[in-house]
Amino acid sequence: MAYSDKVLDHYNNPRNVGALDKSSDEVGTGLVGAPECGDVMRLQIRVNPETQVIEEAKFRTFGCGSAIASSSLATEWVKGKTVDEALGIKNTDIVKELALPPVKIHCSVLAEDAIRAAIGDWKKKNHVSEAVEVAVAAK
């Protein structure tokens, strides 16, 4: 199976690889996995407490090229968005942008889950009550 140019670009030149201080109140951490293939993905966001804008995002993914590309793209997309805007990112947007084949759709699902888990973690830390995402507690 051939990867699209966009996947290859993110894979060879991943954006925002790294870690943020997990213990900081401004940081939300999402750790998710895809049992189908054994991938793990950690996505972290740093949120401005005043504006609720995601100012920084980092990821670390152990998995295939599509999983790495999906999470790299996800960090690019969430930056500059408010947490609520970021929740609007759908895995299908990632599929489209990266031209993922059907067998790799779960990589995009994983990235969406990671965004939600990170935002969920941040909300929990900051007692932002919203029942939107109880299901993706992933904790």
Binding site: G33, C37, V103
Partner: peptide
Amino acid sequence: GEEHAGVNKRADRQP
């Protein structure tokens, strides 16, 4: 397995 992963959407499968 992997070939079915695309169809299978999240949550209950989170390890």
